[in-house]
Structure formats: C-alpha cells, structure tokens
Design a protein around this nucleic acid. Sequence first.
DNA 1: CGTCAATGTGGACATCGTACACAAGGTGTT
DNA 2: AACACCTTGTGTACGATGTCCACATTGACG
Lengths: 219, 219
Amino acid sequence: MTSRAGARKRDTYRHGDLRNALIQAGLELVRDGGPNAVVLREVTRRVGVVPNAAYRHFADRNALLRAIRQAALAQLAAAMETELAALPPADDPVESARDRIRALAAGYLRFAQAEPGLFRAAFSTSDMTDTATGTTTAENESAYGPGGLSAFQLLGAALDDLVESGALPAERRPGAEYFVWSAVHGLAVLLIDGPLRGLLPVQVDEAGQRLMDSIERGI
Amino acid sequence: MTSRAGARKRDTYRHGDLRNALIQAGLELVRDGGPNAVVLREVTRRVGVVPNAAYRHFADRNALLRAIRQAALAQLAAAMETELAALPPADDPVESARDRIRALAAGYLRFAQAEPGLFRAAFSTSDMTDTATGTTTAENESAYGPGGLSAFQLLGAALDDLVESGALPAERRPGAEYFVWSAVHGLAVLLIDGPLRGLLPVQVDEAGQRLMDSIERGI
DNA sequence: CGTCAATGTGGACATCGTACACAAGGTGTT
DNA sequence: AACACCTTGTGTACGATGTCCACATTGACG
C-alpha cells in the first residue's frame, strides 16, 4: 500500500537475498536512466527495505554501482554469445572466423542500442576513480557471460581463430583486439551518446556495415 | 575570509560576467572530477555568488553542464588544431594528408589522456537526455576551435584532402569519418575509463600506433 | 530624477548519501 | 532448553544538494 512500484511488503524480518535484490532493482533503474539514476534510497524503496539496509551488503552507493556494472557487463557478454550461437555453421574456417568477429561486433552494437542505460552503466567510471586517488579500483574488471568469457575475451578468441585459420598473419595478432574493440566501442558510444545519436536505423546499419568492412581491412 | 578557494569577494553588486565565470569555474571542477563534480553550489561558491544567482543565466544545473561541455569540446578541437599546426610541411600531398589524419588522431588521444575530466565532460550525456523524453537536446552539437571547425569537421576536412590527393578512392569517402572517429574515440574512452586504463605510457603509445596503422589500412 | 527590467540575495523545502545507536532474529555452545 | 553472539534490518539525525519563491539592488533609459 505505502510503497509505489512492486515493493511488496516482506513478511519475514530478514529479506533472505537482499544483496541480489538490490542489484536487480538497480539494474531496473539503470535500464532507463543510466548510472546516476541509481539512487540508493530508491533502490531500497523498490526492494521494500529501509535505506540503511543496503549498507549491510555494500560499503556505499559506489560499491552497489560497481556490482550493477558487473552485472551489466555480464549481460553484454551474454548478448554477444547469443549472437555467436545464432550463427549458421560455415565450412570455410576463414569465412567462419570472420563471421564470428562480425557477429560479436554486431552483438555489441545491438546491445548498446537496445539497452543504452545498461551499456552506459557497464562502462561508467566517473564515480569509481575518485579524483587522483589513483586507486582506480583494480578489481576484476570483467564480468562473464554464460560461457564464462568476458566481452573482451570473446573477441580475443575470435581473433585467435582468425590467425589459426590463416586469414591473419600472426605478427599482426598482438594488439589486434585493442583496435577492433576500440572501433566497435567507439561507434557504440558515438551512436548512443555522441553526435551520431539520432541517426536513422538505416543509417545506423550502414555505419555499422561500413565500420565492420573497415575493421576487416584494418586488422 | 568566509570563502574557501579563490572566491574573491566582489565589490560590485553586479558581477559583470557571471555566466562566463560560472562556466570557467565549472571547467575547473570538471577538470579533476568529471561531469558530476560540477556541483552548482560549489560553482557559485567559487565565483563568490549565492547559488541562486546561477539561475539568472542557466535554466538549471543541466544547462550549465551543457555550456561546460561545449567549452570542453572547443578545447578538444583547439588541441587538435595545435597538433595540426605543429606538423612540419610535407611536399607529397598524399603523405601530407595522411600525416594530418595521424596528427588529428594523436591530438585527440593526447587530449583525452591529458585532460580526462574535460574529455569525459565533453561526451557526457547521462543527464541531458532525460529518459525517453526523446528531445535529445538537438542543439548545435559541436563546439568550435580557434579555427572555427569542430573536431568532427577537422577530421572530415583531412579526409577530403586524402581523397583529393588521390590516396583514397572517392567511393570510400562517404562514412569514412564515422569509422576513423569511432576507432580513435573508442581507444580514448577505453584508455581513460575502460579496461585499458592503467596501461603504461609505452603500451599506450604502442596501442596508439597500432590503431593508426589499422585505421590507415581500413579507411 | 523616476521607473523598470535585469541581476543578485535570503530563506525554505524535499531529497539524497550516510553515520550512529538500537531491535530482531538466526546460530552455535553448553 | 537456555543463553550469548553475530548478522541483518530499523529509526533517527545531519550535512549537502538542486531548486522555488519573495525581496533587494542596480544600471539603463525615459
């Protein structure tokens, strides 16, 4: 009654799974509203718990945000894996490796556009490195998808296959993921935040194709 | 006395240039602390004015932030122009055009690393598009450097020269800036925010070189 | 010199993150 | 079964923030 949205009154004094519930509610907030829509009081409100309860599971709002970011990264990786899985089997190993890279890139871009809030959250740091503390929160930076690989690792594996199939000279392999990831990530960011925001879906597709062609040439 | 940092007590009742002063103070805050270090009250404090005074020049905190972002974008463009100007004159027009693109990219990356706060602010939107209002603040998205060109336009011009010099087939020109910008922007973001943060300066240079090589191949 | 629009001030309010002390409820020992 | 203890949630409180409203000060223009 008193609570606004889906905040059922719990009958037990203990919640049982508060930590996860908070992350889940946070993800909902982040989904439409980006990282700084995660306001601690609102998160706890949704779970039906008093604000301070969150402090039993997270040091502060930033810690909660980090956990949410981790979850968002995992969803990214999952989306990319899904795209991989949907790929029809190809006989030519070279073709196959190329297709996988394109699929990963497409999954990345699609996720960014389908879930800009999650995507922004996944790569937001504005709050974690607090101004020259230098700590940079060097924790495990990557969150893994169902397959156990992070987005970055997925890309790395695909590039390895590209080398193995003979399509990419081994001496070009080192650092290749930096280039590919940079290009894809850059387009994603420019599309949802930057000056390319507001492009028509057709143009977005064109830009995506153009980008992937250039990536293939440039690797 | 009462004010903490550099907040001189003004003798005139009117400030005379409050709007600019606020933007300037905001830039200082953004410089170490990123976009959400721009706290309206702190900004006005630094200028030596009461918080509400800002509302005579900006509709709200977001409007101030937009102005600051514009200024940061201008500084980015300026940094790129500087890099261009420092380029030794080349006789071969093809070489020259390539050098200019590399210089622009280098300027972009250098600026991002030298002024991560400004850079983040320049491309932050988390607050301007308020959740499905759809307005996306379609104002003049670009801020111009001393030369009167935005970062994007600088790149476009360099690419035009590349075509004119014959190094780039005209049919590859359309959309080329999307690719180049994406790659450079992506690396910049990954370097200062993303998982590539914390790379050693040497590695950063390597990644930068690698990226620019790939870009040249891929354009 | 008087009026008026522009600009800055003062005070108030709701909301936020978070600290501190306390309550409720499991868990393990005896 | 009784008890102490540790974990987890509650209540209250404080300082800070963005923004609203009414008022004060000022320069420009008649």
